[in-house]
Each structure stands twice: as structure tokens, then as C-alpha cells.
Design a protein around this nucleic acid. Sequence first.
DNA 1: CCTTCCGCTTGTGATGTGCAACCGCTCGTC
DNA 2: GACGAGCGGTTGCACATCACAAGCGGAAGG
Lengths: 165, 165
Amino acid sequence: MREANEPRSECPINAAIEAFGDRWSLIVLRDIVFGDRRYFRELQANSIEGIASNILADRLKRLVKSGLLTREDTRPGQRARYSLTEPAIQLVPVFAQLGSWGLRHRPTSSALNARAVLLEQGGPALWHEFMDELRREHLGSELPARSPSVRERLNAAYRAATNSS
Amino acid sequence: MREANEPRSECPINAAIEAFGDRWSLIVLRDIVFGDRRYFRELQANSIEGIASNILADRLKRLVKSGLLTREDTRPGQRARYSLTEPAIQLVPVFAQLGSWGLRHRPTSSALNARAVLLEQGGPALWHEFMDELRREHLGSELPARSPSVRERLNAAYRAATNSS
DNA sequence: CCTTCCGCTTGTGATGTGCAACCGCTCGTC
DNA sequence: GACGAGCGGTTGCACATCACAAGCGGAAGG
């Protein structure tokens, strides 16, 4: 995974792939963005894909170094909280498109689909509302909050799909 | 890269990552989509990232198996042409979002950026025009062609950026 | 003191990657 | 009908990354 190597090319698509295009980085970010997980153990224990702890530690370190996450300094032995940065928050449209694609072209669970469906139906307007919400939670932005939050709506859709199916 | 294993989860985002979320699959698809490369040697020789032939062979094989490419049957020793399938054509919005992100948050070449900029400015309307164009070239669709084609416009933007910078 | 939780680190074996050389096949030319 | 060029790959090797399981030191609570 070429740590600190120069990029293979200056193509913006390749740059994106080099930043988070491995098997785990996007999964970690997805769980922070949509699952609201902020701590190491939260990310590891609740991971539906079952990430190994050494991989998680490595990815968190790398994502901090590449400017997609920040880590609040803590004394050792204390819970360290990870926060999204603005570049990471701007991955929401990427997640939405990936979700729409996976939804259409791969066999997926109808319950986990619910979020992708809602995110697709909401379109860019919903994405930006969600991004503002993330800025409030992770960057301390002072933007006015709406109720119910986008994440609440996404999770409500997930619960509804779980019960009905 | 877990060949023929069951997916790690049924999440649509994870499904997308498992389909093309490695270091090379999207690069290969990008060169077919935007670079109009259809043959093995074309993909290998013109690759700006310098893909190795064994990796290219493996990715082409895997993309065919997973339904993103088709390979025209040919006798050995003869040029084999690869074509995009409908699922692969529907990756255009994903490429657009990845390009927009890379453009904003990573250092990239202004010339290679030109395509991403145009694709972003054009928005979903341009994406769908481009997808129709790809359907014509790769699936033999009978949709009416427009002139100039989207790829011509993308390449013109690239050349303009190359000359002016 | 002892247990529990915290963020990791370490070791091992399996899998994926980059690099360069090589392979069999076919086609056009002499 | 031998030759070289071009075709889509394959092979071998060294190295990086991977998953899995176990363990670590510090902090907090009883």
C-alpha cells in the first residue's frame, strides 16, 4: 500500500484511489460517517465485515496522516476520538454513488440497502444536508440543525427494512 | 483479493468495493472508458501508471468473470477485444465523483484535471450523454449519435490544458 | 490490589504485488 | 516455408500486504 511513496500518476481518479482505494479505508470511513463510530473499539467490535485490529490501527493512522481524519490527543490508555475532516465529509457523494451502483448491480441485503435507496432518492440536496450535519458533529460547525437529522432518517429506514423483511 | 469467496457483507458500498475496490481494477476501467482502449497491449503500453502485464491479465479476467467486461472470443494469437457491460457503463457517475474529489483534495496535474472539471461542470446530463455514447460503442446500441462526442470534448479539454499550461 | 477497558503491537502463515523474462500462436513478407 | 513482428498472455522470484490470534502497558473503578 505504498506508504509515503510518490503517486503513480497525477490523474485525479488515481489520486482518489491512492488515498482510500484499498479494501478497508472506505469501510472505516463509511462506519464513521453513517454509523457514527468515533472510537477504536467501536469501529472494531461493530464492524459487519470483521476488520482485524492491526488493519484498523494501520488505516486510522494512515487516514490521519493523509488528512482525512483527525485524532484528539489523549494520554495513553484513554479513549481516543477520531473526527472527520472536510475532505472526508466531501466523500458523501462518492458513497452515495457507490451505494447506488452496488444496489443495482450486486446482490445485497434489503435492510442495508435502505440507506442507499434513501440517499439516492434524496439526491444532492440530501447529501449536502447530511454533510452539514457531519460538519456540526465533527468540525464543531455552528450551522443550524434540523430535526430529524439525516442520520436518524437513514437509520429509521434501516430499521423499517429490518422489521418488514 | 478473495477470488470466488462469499462477500464479507451485504452492504452495497462493500459490494462495490469488492467488485472494483482494489488498486488496479478502476484504473483499467478508466482507461477503457475515457481512453477508449480495447486491447491488452493498448492498455498495457499506454498506461500512465505502468500496470504490469500479469496484473492486467488478472484484472481483465476478473472483470470479465464479475460481469463488468466482455471479451470477444478469438483464436489464440489474435487480437481480443474487451467491451464494457451495462454495469461498467453505469460507473461513469462514480468516476465523476471520484474525479471531483481528487481534483479538490489532492495535488494533481492540471492537464489531467481538465477532464474531471468538464465532467463536473456538465453534471448528470453530460454523464448520461457519455453513457449513451459508451452504449453505442460497446453494446452496439442504436441510440442516435451527437457531434461532437463527449469523449472528443473531454480530449479537447485535455489538449487545451496541455498546451496552455 | 484486582479486574476491566483502552488503543494498539507482535508474530505467523497465506495471499497479492511489481518486475522482467519468456511462451505459443498468427499474420504478412520475402 | 522460414522469419520477424505483433498478439494475449504465463512464469518465477522477491517483497509487501493480509487475516487471525494472542498479548501489551496505561488508566479507571471497586
